[in-house]
């Protein structure tokens, strides 16, 4: 895989060290200071057991542009989390390129939640615990220029993959 064409050879398998990206649309999914992502950002939509994420291997610009495309105008930033941190508490992260290349699903392996009704207490506790662990491990990047194409924030990638050169150091001043 090259930096010029990250999609050319995207493996289906997601390595533990790979960075997974969740686009954040609503301010309700971040704390008031917009520095941390809230656990509710990792809750699946009603009737679903999975939530949509992107693979950073496709590039930061891809994640930003796709996030905007998916989320619409209220997009506010991106949250990055290592695949290993998704798997640690028991969730799955799997490639789901049926929708688009670079798309993946996080599956909490918990029953789907009903519309308008809370899950029973035992399921609520499991879901709360799972989402809290993911939120604690995720790094939220507020987009400094959400209406402009391409990513202008700090690098999303959290770690290098085995056998890969480390990502270049970001010399841009912090936003």
């Amino acid at each position: 895989m090259t930096a010029a064409d990250p999609a050319a050879d995207l493996p289906i398998e997601i390595h533990d060290a790979e960075t997974i990206v969740r686009a954040v649309k609503t301010p309700h999914h971040v704390n008031p200071a917009e520095t941390r992502i809230r656990p509710s950002a990792f809750r699946p939509a009603p009737g679903h057991t999975v939530l949509s994420v992107m693979r950073q291997l496709m590039g930061d610009d891809f994640c930003k542009d796709k996030g905007v495309e998916i989320c619409g105008n209220e997009y506010i930033g991106l949250a990055a989390i290592a695949a290993a941190e998704v798997r640690r508490p028991g969730s799955l992260v799997v490639d789901y390129r049926d929708d688009f290349l670079g798309h993946a699903h996080i599956d909490h392996q918990l029953p789907a939640i009903q519309r308008n009704e809370p899950p029973p207490p035992d399921l609520l506790q499991q879901l709360d615990d799972r989402c809290k662990k993911l939120a604690a491990a995720a790094v939220f990047h507020k987009d400094p220029s959400p209406t402009v194409p391409s990513w202008a924030g700090s690098a999303l990638r959290l770690a290098s993959l085995p056998g890969e050169r480390p990502p270049p150091v970001d010399l841009r001043p912090p936003v």
Partner: peptide
């Protein structure tokens, strides 16, 4: 919060009844 429209999170969220 009660006034949020459908799809307020961009992923198909339900509005608050």
């Amino acid at each position: 919060i009660s006034n949020l429209a459908d799809n307020w999170d961009g992923y198909g969220a339900t509005s608050i009844h």
